[in-house]
Amino acid sequence: MSSITANILNVVGILVFVVASAAMLTWVERRMLGIWQERYGPNRVGPFGILQVAADMIKLLMKEDWVPPFADRFVFVVAPTIAMFVVVAAYAVIPMAPGIGVIDLNIGLLFFLAMTSLSAYSVMFGAYASDNKYALLGGLRAAAQMLSYEVFLGLSLMGVVMLAGTFNLREIVLAQQEQWFVIPQFLAMLLFFIAGIAESHRTPFDLPEAEHELTAGFHTEYSGMKFGMFFIGEYVSVLLTASMMVVLFFGGWLGPVLPPLVWFLLKTSILVLLMILIRGALPRPRYDQLMAFGWKVMLPLAMINLVVTGVLVLV
């Protein structure tokens, strides 16, 4: 009985935590960017503007649930649901600390890859269903970008799998007790980080929604909570990428003195802040440059990393 209660607490707790912290991230990002850009950011609602999230949520929820008459209604509604669902589902396999985590899958890593692949559908469906030229261009870019970077995302992880000898994320963390994988797999860490940003299509890989070219890209026609789901989905995906990096390369919850969960959250927050900083710093490459970078730089590097790791493991 108590184990069932614990499980439910685990599942609901993590779900609430993930969604809530993703929502909070919108505030964190705006505040941090504000500080780095010599301005305040949202500081009016509540102490330090922390209730800005609540205000935004109220605004989004109160908006008319509008579907454009020219849109493909069913697909239009399904797309943001997928966006939200896949990233939250992928978070289920993340082991946050011993005993904290939704599910402990043998193939946790594969499950993560499968779920992130699915997220390409949400963008494509959203773009297709909108029947809008800007959305269409955004959708095309997104499809090409996400499919390409999916490849390097997967390949960059295989080195870790070889070293740990398992697809189980909990065991991968435990395998890092001697040494974090970031040291032998530094290159893989960088590749995964880049591919992860591309997967969550954030600057400098925000081409699918490049504001200055495509107004809002694939979600041009979305408003209200449907837009909110794309938006929160993006931030969950940021959280997911950061958590995944912590698990795979930075020893998960491992660390001295502080409780495991605190270590996990601390490491994750630092990586999230790094992603926000990158957004503040870099311009956006062009679509063809992005693809060329992927296939001509990322792919060979991922391959080399894989081969070298393989040789070292065998020897």
Binding site: L33, W36, Q37, E38, R39, T203, G280, A281, L282, P283
Partner: peptide, 11 residues
Amino acid sequence: QDVGQMSPIFY
């Protein structure tokens, strides 16, 4: 900003 760099305009 138009080539996607967010911060310079604020400085």
